[in-house]
Write a protein that binds this DNA or RNA. Sequence first.
DNA 1: TAGAATTTCCGAAGCGGTTTGGATATCACC
DNA 2: GGTGATATCCAAACCGCTTCGGAAATTCTA
Lengths: 342, 342
Amino acid sequence: MNLKELSENLGLSQTTVSRALNGYPEVNESTRHRVQQAAALGNYRPNIRAMSLATGRSMTIGHVIPVASQGEVVNPIFAEFVAGASQTYTQFGYELQLSFTTTQDEQTIYRTLAAKRAVDGVILHSPLRDDPRLKLLKEIGLPFVVHGRVCDTSEAYNWIDMNNRSAFKQATQLLIDLGHRNIALINGQEQLTFAWLRRCGFEDALCENGIAINPELMTTAELTEPYGYQTSKALLRREDPPTAFLVSSYVVALGVRRAIGQAGLTIGKDVSVIIHDDELSYFDNGAAVPQFTATRSSVRQAGMLAAEMLLNQIDDPGLFPQNTLLESTLTIGSSTGPCKLM
Amino acid sequence: MNLKELSENLGLSQTTVSRALNGYPEVNESTRHRVQQAAALGNYRPNIRAMSLATGRSMTIGHVIPVASQGEVVNPIFAEFVAGASQTYTQFGYELQLSFTTTQDEQTIYRTLAAKRAVDGVILHSPLRDDPRLKLLKEIGLPFVVHGRVCDTSEAYNWIDMNNRSAFKQATQLLIDLGHRNIALINGQEQLTFAWLRRCGFEDALCENGIAINPELMTTAELTEPYGYQTSKALLRREDPPTAFLVSSYVVALGVRRAIGQAGLTIGKDVSVIIHDDELSYFDNGAAVPQFTATRSSVRQAGMLAAEMLLNQIDDPGLFPQNTLLESTLTIGSSTGPCKLM
DNA sequence: TAGAATTTCCGAAGCGGTTTGGATATCACC
DNA sequence: GGTGATATCCAAACCGCTTCGGAAATTCTA
C-alpha cells in the first residue's frame, strides 16, 4: 500500500492525503479523519526511503563503534549506551544505524556516511585525547555528539561525559582516608580520554596528600577480565604489594577479585578495591550492600542524553555546541576497609 | 556532489555515468575510467536513499533486540553477535539497523519495518519455544533468519543455532564421570528455546545414567551476576548441597564463583563448575588452562554466518530455508574435579 | 559497399513521497 | 449581488538515482 493507491481509494489527491497524515492545517478535519482511518486500516506507512529523499533528511543516526581490528574486543558499554540512545530515537521517530570499524578506516567511513546521505548525525564513541575525527566531522559538516571528551582542542563541540577526574580523585581520597598509601590504578588505555582523566584524578588525590606517585603501580590496557587478573596477580607478588586497587571497570575488577582470592586474601579486609561502575544491567552492583565500593554513573542514561543533544543540534543547526558533565556517585560497598598495615 | 553535477562536469548523461560506476558492460572502458576518476576526485557517493528508492532494495538489515521492558537487561551476547554480523554486512555493502523493543511492541515493529520498507530482512533474536514472530514474519513476507530455534513448529525457516542440547548433555556427562550426582543447573529463562534445550540435554544425561531429576536443583532466570550469586548461595545452604554446577553463562558463573568463595569452598576441588562460554571478547576464558571448564561456541561467528545466510536468502527469495547447527567444543579448565563425596 | 550487427551513448520514465503555486468553493460583509 | 477573505483541495515539479527503449556511430559480413 503506497500513497498513490491510498489516495485513489479515497478519491483524493496524494497532496491532500499526505497533508492529512502529516498534520498540516489546510485540510478539513472530517477528511483528515477519513484519511487516518483508511491509512490505519490498510496499514499504510510512508516509504521511508522516498520520504527521506523528498525531505532531505534520513531520520537515522549513525553510531560508529571503533574496534582495534576485526575480531577485537567489543566494549560492553557500547551495547548499554546504544540501548539508551535508541530509546530517545524511537521516541522521536529516528532510526539507529550501527557500524563497526577499525581505526584506520575511520577517516573514510565518516566521509562515506556523509556523502551517501546515510545519516543525519553521528555519535562519536571512545574519543582519544587528540582525536582527528573531531576536525574531520567539523570539516564535512555532519552534526555529532561526542560521548566523552577530547583534551587537546580549544574548539567548541557537543559532548556529554562523566566527570572521570573528580570521580577517581574522590575514590582515591577515600582509600587514603582509610589509611592506604600503596594504591594501584588498573586503568584503561590512556590514549583514550576517559582513562587519561581518571589517572589525573588519581594523581590529584595522591599529590594533595603528599603521596609519591609510583608508575609501577599504574597499568593500562584494554578492559578485560584476564587483564585484571594478570596485572593484579603480578602486583600482589611485589615485595611491597598494594593494599588497595582502583579499577576502571567492573569486568576488570572481576579479574582482580580472582587474583586476590587465589592469593588467599579477602577483599575488603586484606585488600580494598574500588571500581568504576557503568551500571551495566546484567551486572547490577546495587544490592543493599554492593559487593564493590564504586563510583557509579549510568552509561545508559548518558546514551539517552547524548541522543537528545544530537537531535536538538540537528533540529537547529545554528545552536551553539552543548556540553553535559555528569557527576558520579560514590557508594560504599563491602570491598573497602581500613588499611591493615597501619 | 550528485549524479547530475557529476555527469554535467563530464559532459555525459546520467545514464552513462551511473552505468559506468555500476559496472555495466555497455560503456566504453576509457570513458568508464574517466568517470571513475572524476567520481573519486569529487568524492562522489550515490545518495543511498535515492538509490534504494530506485532499486527497491534498502540495502540494510534490521536487528530487533527484545528487552523485557525499557531499562531492562541488555544481553551482552547481542553486541558480540551484531559485531560478527556487521562484518559480513560491510563486506557486501549492507547497513545494519538496530532497534530495541519490548515484547508487547514486537508485533507492530516488524509490520512497520516491512511497511515502510526500512529493511530488506531481519535477524530474529532470542526465539521462544513457541514464537509468534515466526508466523508474523512469514505472513508479511520479510526475509529473516533466526538466531536459535523455535520448537513447536513443523514449518521450514532459516535458522542458525548452537547445539545446546548435546553441549549440555556432554557437560553433564563429564560431571557424572567425575562422580558427581548432585548437580545443579543454573539456567536461563526456559520459555527461551536455548535454555529449554540446555535443560533437555542436562536431563538426557541424568536419565541415561539413572540419576533422578531433582527440580530443586534447577533454576531459571535472566542471566545476571546477582542471579548466579544468590541462587548458588541458596543451593549451597541445603543440607545436601550440589557438588557441581552447570551454569548457562560466564556472567552468571561469576556470581556462582563469588558465592562459592564466600562459602569458604574452592572451585575445582570442593565444587565443580562447568559453564557455557559464548566467547565474548572481553572475558576470554581461553588461557592455556582456562579458568572454567566450558562448552564453547563463538557467538561472533554465529553472527557472521547468520548474516551470510540472510543475504543469500535475500538474493534468491526462492531458496529453500537453510539451517546450520554449530557444535560446541568442551574444553577442560581448572573449575572441575572429581567429586569429593565419592 | 550495402546492410546487418555491435558498440556506445542518451532521453525519459519511473521509484514514492513532499511541497509549491494555484484553482475552486464557501463564507462573511457591505 | 459583488467583493474579498478563507477553507479546502489539486496538478505538477522535485528529491537523486536506476533502467527501459531507442538512436547514432562504428565495425563486421557477404
